[in-house]
Nucleic acid binder design. Structure first.
Lengths: 220, 220
DNA sequence: CGAATAGTGTCTGTGAGACAGTATTCT
DNA sequence: AGAATACTGTCTCACAGACACTATTCG
């Protein structure tokens, strides 16, 4: 019954970060065929001997190929079929990952390439589809969870938090309503005595109450 | 580089239906090892020669093992690892599927077994985890989409629709608020001249405006 | 007739947008 | 001083729950 060749199994990571106030995808330039030299999602084979799960493989590959430990790594969906990879029938388990701003020179050293999330660059495999799915999932989930906060450093001001939500949701939010909702949802707590001095006037720093993503019922 | 054995790839389907007013999982009794004779999710190998995608494999397996064409078949998540299946390192792409009430005798003929979704029967593999994930996803998505309607026949009354939402959400809904919201969202349209006579008083029959699932912003 | 379900109208509380207005610090 | 950002208070509208009320059909 199992004479047919098994499909091969990979993982691909849609890694997002913020660079100079814009949502950016972190891609990398492939070193090996197929599509050597092309820019693509960070991805690779699942190694059964080495990886405890597919998520473990994604973590390993992020570390090996980008030198990054993402703050969030969640499964998105699995893409499969005979045509998506020239090597044959394959399945790729796609993840999305979030990391706070990374240094540009570290990125270049690791052959990483930044691209605006909104852009539709020509990518190999079905990576454009994967990114499209990530964008959709990401936008919807961002509206009712603390996901966007993981694009910030662990301590942040309310303005920074609002701006990252605005960026992700693609619309402006009412400042006072935002403060009110965040307050009522009890998602964040002030860091005693810590003030940010990055803007005109010092602002209270906050941190998330929970270390993981929290989903809530209302929308932000 | 590829001397390691490839993981093997399966699909598993969490098939839901309604039987006598209760949400029921449709499981089946396995005929082959591992776990022959045990009740488990409907699932099987992806056949690269035969299946265009993993979703196609899930459709085929639903047809072959349950004789069912589901009205909804959506990907849930992929479960992987060395221990979830005694045959070795595996990945299973899990789907959830919805079908309106099925006849009990057809179910028995196909070795199908019904089990309440809420129950926690001892299942082989990691099928309990998969069902848990399905229940969670399903509940959340049901609150802001037309998903529950696909547990009904194509034509249904407003009461039936409300009751299926109540079943899925696990709480009662206010009848008048429900009518108002459904009306404003323009999700369904009346079927001219069609009246259901299943209850004390004839009721207007409706159908979905869209053939697929529609997601909306507000919650039901 | 009485029970049961279908369907409508209205009151009310709450959440969220809009926006004015105050406070604090920087240049 | 003036600009810019942080933060607060209030008004108002819209949505959702509650509930009363009418309508229609069945036993």
């Amino acid at each position: 019954m199992h004479l047919e060749p098994r499909p091969f199994l990979t993982v691909d990571v849609v890694l997002l970060t913020i660079v100079s106030g814009e949502l950016q995808l972190v891609l990398h330039r492939r070193k090996e065929p197929p599509f050597a030299g092309r820019v693509a999602l960070i991805g690779g084979y699942v190694h059964p001997q080495e990886d405890a799960t597919a998520a473990g493989a994604a973590e390993r590959i992020l570390r090996e190929k980008a030198g990054i430990e993402a703050r969030i790594l969640d499964q998105l969906a699995t893409f499969s079929g005979p045509a998506r990879d020239p090597r044959g029938w394959s399945a790729s388990i796609a993840y999305y990952a979030l990391t706070p701003e990374i240094s540009l020179k570290a990125a270049e050293a690791a052959s990483l390439v930044l691209a605006p999330l909104a852009g539709t660059a020509a990518l190999p495999f079905d990576h454009a589809d994967i990114i499209g799915a990530a964008r959709q999932r990401w936008r919807r989930r961002a509206a009712y969870s603390t996901l966007p906060a993981f694009l910030l450093a662990p301590q942040f001001t309310l303005s920074e938090l609002r701006k990252v939500y605005e960026l992700v949701l693609g619309r402006t939010l009412n400042d006072s309503a935002f403060r009110r909702k965040i307050d009522e949802l009890r998602l964040i707590e002030p860091v005693d005595g810590a003030k940010s001095r990055n803007s005109d006037r010092p602002a209270q720093l906050y941190r998330l109450c929970e270390t993981g993503v929290v989903e809530f019922d209302r929308t932000i």
